[in-house]
Amino acid sequence: MFSSLILNQLSRLTLSSASKLSLNTRNISSSAVVQFRITDQLCAEPLKKKKKVDPAIIKAREDRRRKKLEKQIRKLQKNARQLKPIEEIEPPLHLMDQMGKRKRPPVVLSAEETESRALLLKEWTRYKKQEYMANVAQIDRIMAAQRRALDMLYEESEDLYNEAIMPDLQLVPCSFTSTFSTPPIKNYESPDGEYIDVSKKWGTK
């Protein structure tokens, strides 16, 4: 009886034999009280204890950080009023020097000239207004034509209508070229020469 109990307990130490012996490997047994116990296998280690820091040192550290920040803020506030000049919009100095030389004599317009200019300006305004009204009417007309086409399509087939009102994603990005003032020359080879880009690079380095 006792020997079997011992075997029961020690079998846990040799796992391979335990499985072979098919003995009870758990600590539950129907026999007398088991006195031998083995500690559990945890497969882990206990947590490290947290280091305790003196609260005074922490406070000192915090203070130092705050002071540093405050100093930076003060420095920024002091310079807030000062604006940094933008190099690319400053007029070149040599041009400023020649200002007197470069000024044209002031133009004195005759009364007739002033009048004709004012009249032309008024006429131009009227012309532009008419042009604008015509443009708006034109856009209305084109939109109405499309609306009608879509309505007719809806009457004919709802599926086709639903396809037609889908946005066309191929159009993004979209680019158009404008007109030229003279027609392009076919197979034109521009004269030889070197292209040197002298424009300065602006912006952050």
Partner: peptide, 12 residues
């Protein structure tokens, strides 16, 4: 280049 999925005019 087609500029829309929708028809722009109708005629029957």
């Amino acid at each position: 280049k087609f500029v829309s999925n929708a028809p722009c005019g109708f005629y029957n």
